[in-house]
Design a protein around this nucleic acid. Sequence first.
RNA 1: GGUCCCAUCGUCUAGCGGUUAGGAUAUCGGCCUCUCACGCCGAAGACACGGGUUCGAUCCCCGUUGGGACUACCA
Length: 483
Amino acid sequence: MENDVRVRFAPSPTGYLHIGNARTALFNWLFARHNRGKFILRIEDTDRERSTRESEQIVLKSLKWLGINWDEGPGVDGDYGPYRQSERWGIYRDYAEKLLDDQLAYRCYCLPEELEETRKSCLARGKMPKYDGRCRELTRKERTRFENEGRIPTIRFEVREGRVVVNDSLRGEIVFESDTIGDFIIIRSDGTAAYNFAVVIDDFLMKISHVIRGEDHLSNTPRQILLYRAFNFALPQFLHHSLILGPDKTKLSKRHGVTSVEQFKNSGFLSDAVVNYLSFLGGALGEGGEIFSPEEIVDRFSIEQVGKSAAIFDFEKLKWMNKAHINRLELNELTGLIIPFIEKAGYHTTDKKIGWLTDVVDLTRERLRTLDQIGEEVGIFFQEESEFGPDAVEVLKNEGVLNLLELLKQEINIEQDIPEESYRNIMLRIKKKTKLKGKSLFMPVRVVLTGRTKGPEMEKIFPLMEKEAVLKRIDMGLKLLAR
RNA sequence: GGUCCCAUCGUCUAGCGGUUAGGAUAUCGGCCUCUCACGCCGAAGACACGGGUUCGAUCCCCGUUGGGACUACCA
């Protein structure tokens, strides 16, 4: 197998991990694992204003939760570090210096306000805003004058006439004319490297073989290719995948609801389901099935198969997938994951036997689409009393229910305990005495014991309930009927 | 405005010149069942439009329309 496959995910730590970025990370990771290559995590924190260590931690945590592990990066030493751009400024400086020496870049003394003004006037005249290159040919005299004014220069890359062809493994050759690009800043006035510059230096130095990223970077690529050329660096293979859109076909953002990986976790999605959905969206898993484990996905994943068009994020399908994964998961593992959600619903699990808990989870799991729905499913086991909803009251008001409940109470009192077999026996005896059967027999029992008309099989619920609770609930039902 | 990308059921997609345009999800019926959920069966639902090329276009080319991305001393 090819072993020189090296890909990277390069988030900027300016907030939580967006689900769309998570998909990019996942694509890179899957590509690396599928091809037995290396997955590198690089933190792009050159924007000192917005980058924080807190967000970096959140991003790392989200990646870990998704099961995306890195071979090199923060916390994992490699031969090409450091892996935080803020720790690499000296490297960028040196390379920028080289460009300056070769006269491929120049110092620009324009002030941000001045640039903003020309930009605005360009826009006003319906022209493309582009740096006019006015600092390209400054004389020594002009330069010292600017410096005496206290202006601190940026370094701009000089874009010359010609065309740039981006070879994208998904979209083929895309041609850009250089004159639409304009000289761009590679070193800011504060000495830090700008994105397009740092990326190129790092991708080269870190021996990145494939650059897999979102379509939003496609128009940056010609700039980067120009830099590759200036340094005589060999080009990596580029691939720009399409973006995820919200239901209104605009870029998925907060106003569409849940967008951060952290939120998906907190609202009860399984990482396996999120991974499954993100990799499935776009068609990279091929035909023949949709529900897969991470291992199966690594095996099936083929980046060349992803669609070129943007895909709308369908929460409904994700939920369906989540449900499928909930039911696939090993029971003990599921129980461990679901306990925090039971606690969150206000029920205490610490004083419960683990065997009882797993039984409860086993019984309720197949109705869950998300883990946080466990609260409403599990109330019947944790609450002392039944709460009768309108539909429940309706059932209790049926003819013969009063008699049925009294019989039920008697029968339960006769039984010493509530063992496995009890329920069957009790119901059998009541059936004989009341001549009731089917729905008219079982539904009132369900309703009085759980307060609901829906739920798991009564035969399985019954052994998990305390005898006192059962009696108390029957009394509540009787009381309701007495009124 | 400019540059670039994209276009099959509501949604995700299969299709790679000749198909009753297939599947999944969601929706609606039915079966199963004490109920819900699962499962099974069924229904409805798409090639954006207009030109070419061709014996023949969902498929290839061009245009129109629509959507998206970028257009920063953000990444």
